[in-house]
């Protein structure tokens, strides 16, 4: 069943149009990856889904209802969260406060407690550093915190923008393993934007290739990995 559908979405900033009619679909329980070069419009797509960048044309449906007219906080309330590019940790808030804000819209104290224990079990280092300011964490720790903060909202769909950016290879593999684990154990659907295409295609069920604001290829992830054009342009083979 389609959890998220984008129909002919066009969006941009000021005079610059970035997306020219993007259509894609994410089904429940999937990991979908969106790959593409710098400036192809990957982050803009995610920001449009989250309601930060307004649409010029097209529509976005989440759980079958249009969300492109809703303010960002109501989209979060419906169960759609994003970990933006560059992590966006609140630098002057402690790790614990950052996590609390992830669950800003929740009222179920027991559920929040449980999810807090869960993210601390995923990333024990966050528990050790829970009283430190977010701005004082290393890049890898910030990425862990950013993912954990999104998980605190208990999303049905998690948008991840470049989770591997600036991370050492070992840490990247660890983060990807956790993304798969969240998908499997919590049945969280994931839309993953990555420049490291081979890594994300190996984790994903299906993938879309975005070029200059348009979807140029959509296929199963293993088919994309085997696709000669994709190999040449995005996998460097």
């Amino acid at each position: 069943m389609a959890l998220l559908e984008l129909h002919e979405v066009s969006a941009g900033y000021g005079n610059i149009q970035v997306l020219h009619g993007v259509t894609l679909q994410v089904d429940e329980g999937e990991i979908i990856t969106l790959i593409g070069a710098n400036g192809a419009g990957k982050s803009t797509t995610l920001m449009a889904i989250s309601g930060i960048v307004p649409l010029r044309r097209g529509s976005i449906l989440f759980k079958g209802r249009p969300i492109h007219t809703l303010p960002p906080e109501q989209i979060v309330r419906l169960g759609l969260c994003q970990v933006p590019e560059g992590r966006h940790i609140f630098p002057g808030l402690t790790v614990r406060e950052n996590l609390d804000l992830g669950g800003f819209l929740r009222r179920d104290r027991q559920g929040i407690r449980k999810d807090l224990d869960f993210v601390f079990s995923l990333f024990p280092v966050l528990h050790e550093r829970r009283h430190q300011l977010g701005g004082n964490l290393s890049g890898g720790e910030q990425q862990m915190l950013a993912i954990s903060r999104a998980l605190m909202a208990k999303p049905d769909l998690l948008l991840l923008d470049e989770p591997s950016m600036g991370l050492a290879p070992m840490l990247t593999r660890q983060i990807f393993a956790i993304i798969r684990r969240i998908n499997r154990e919590h049945n969280t659907t994931i839309l993953l934007v990555e420049q490291k295409a081979s890594l994300s295609l190996k984790a994903a069920n299906r993938g879309y290739v975005l070029e200059n604001g348009r979807i140029v290829i959509a296929d199963q992830a293993d088919a994309l990995l085997a696709n000669v054009d994709v190999q040449r342009v995005y996998l460097g083979i």
Binding site: S50, P72, V76, R77, H88, F90, G92, L93, D100, L101
Partner: peptide
């Protein structure tokens, strides 16, 4: 109060965690 601090520090991220 927490929402205020979050908004002051990073407005886009505040929206993304569901702060109005």
């Amino acid at each position: 109060g927490k929402a205020m601090r979050a908004t002051a520090q990073d407005r886009t991220m505040a929206m993304l965690v569901g702060i109005s």
